[in-house]
Write a protein that binds this DNA or RNA. Structure first.
Lengths: 108, 108
DNA sequence: ACAACGCATAACCGTTTGGTTATGGTTTAT
DNA sequence: ATAAACCATAACCAAACGGTTATGCGTTGT
C-alpha cells in the first residue's frame, strides 16, 4: 500500500463535511454517492468534490457498478496522521510506547 | 482542562506551516515568537497569526516576559484528534484495544 | 426508443485563508 | 532620552475553498 501525502490526509480531514462522510462510510460501510448525498446535507456535486479530496488522500476507494459508484472508507490511510500523533503527541506517545513494548514482548 | 472544539484542532493542524511550528515547540520546548519566525520561513506577523490559530485550538499556551512572548506546545490538546482516530481508525482501534487489554490485565 | 437516473465536471461566486507590508505599543539597551 | 527590539494588529491581496446551478455522458427502466 502506497502511503498518501500526510498533507493531503490532514487537509482532507480538516473539513467537517468531509469528516462526516468518512465517518458515515466507516460506520455503515460502502455507499453510493446518492446515499451519501442524502446524508451529507449538501448537493450531489459538492459530495462528489469532497469524495475527490478524500480520494487524493487515499481515505476512500471507489468501485463502479453500472451507473452507480460505491465508495468505501480506507481506514489504514490514516496511518500518516497516526504516525504524526505518535511523534508529536507526547502524552499519547508515552501511553503507546508502554503498550507497544508489552506487545513486542508477547508477540515476537 | 477544557477540551477544545475538535474542528479547531483539525483545522489548525491542516496547515503545514502551523504543524511545523507545533513540531518545533514540541521538539525544542518553549520559544519566543522571534525564534519561531527565524525557524518558520515566513514573516513575523504570519507566525503571530498562526500562533493565534493554534491558541484557538488550545494547542499552544503563551507566557509574556517583558517584550517577549514565549509559546509552548500543549500536547494534550491533541486529545480530540486522538479520540477521533480511536473511533474511526478501525485498524488502529483494533491494535490499540488489544494493547490496552493487555495493559489492564497487567496493571490493575 | 426514450425518459429518468447516477455521477462527474464545468462554470461561477462569495468567503476564507495564508501571506505580505505598515503601524503602533510596550519593553529593553545605549 | 532616544533608539532599537519584540510582538500584535490592521490593511490589503491573490489564491484556494466550499458551495451552488448547469450540463453532459453512460446506464437503467419502461
Amino acid at each position: 500500500m502506497t502511503l498518501a501525502n500526510p498533507n493531503h490526509v490532514f487537509r482532507a480531514l480538516s473539513d467537517p463535511t468531509r469528516r462526516a462522510i468518512f465517518e458515515e462510510l466507516t460506520r455503515h460501510g460502502e455507499q453510493t454517492v446518492h446515499a451519501l448525498t442524502r446524508y451529507a446535507g449538501v448537493s450531489q456535486p459538492a459530495v462528489s468534490k469532497h469524495l475527490t479530496v478524500l480520494k487524493r488522500a487515499k481515505l476512500v476507494r471507489h468501485r463502479r457498478d453500472g451507473r452507480e459508484t460505491h465508495y468505501r472508507a480506507q481506514a489504514d490511510a490514516l496511518a500518516p496522521m497516526v504516525d504524526w500523533l505518535d511523534r508529536y503527541g507526547a502524552f499519547w506517545r508515552e501511553r503507546f510506547d508502554k503498550l507497544e513494548g508489552l506487545l513486542n514482548r508477547m508477540e515476537p
